[in-house]
């Protein structure tokens, strides 16, 4: 699957079924979020979020990402401007982080 046509998204643009996610989709979703190229640093965070997100049934919060990856919040914002937790969750095909209940 290399485009978003067959992917179910909610009104906020989060994928509904995380099992539909592929690395190619992540590239497309990232471009939509204004990130043209996903570097290894970007991928380290996406991989962490995929792993913990699927294990816990919910996308990690900003604090969980910074604690879990050891990457500072400042650097997270540099990689994923505006809202890193939300942006990574979207690109990683997870739901909205539940910190935002």
């Amino acid at each position: 699957m290399t485009d978003l046509v067959n992917v179910a998204l909610n009104a906020e643009g989060f994928m509904i079924d995380p099992n539909q996610w592929t690395k190619e989709l992540a590239e497309i979703l990232a471009r939509q979020e204004g990130i043209d190229v996903l570097t290894p640093e970007h991928w380290q965070i996406i991989d962490f979020c995929r792993t913990t997100g699927l294990a816990n049934g919910k996308a990690p919060t900003l604090r969980q990402i910074t604690v879990g990856t050891g990457i500072s919040i400042k650097d997270l914002f540099a990689l994923y401007p505006k809202g890193p937790a939300k942006k990574v969750a979207k690109i990683a095909g997870l739901g909205k982080p539940e910190g935002c209940v």
């Binding site: 009104a11 994928m15 509904i16 079924d17 995380p18």
Partner: peptide, 8 residues
Amino acid sequence: SKSPAPQF
């Protein structure tokens, strides 16, 4: 429904 919950 604007935002169905994600299905894990």
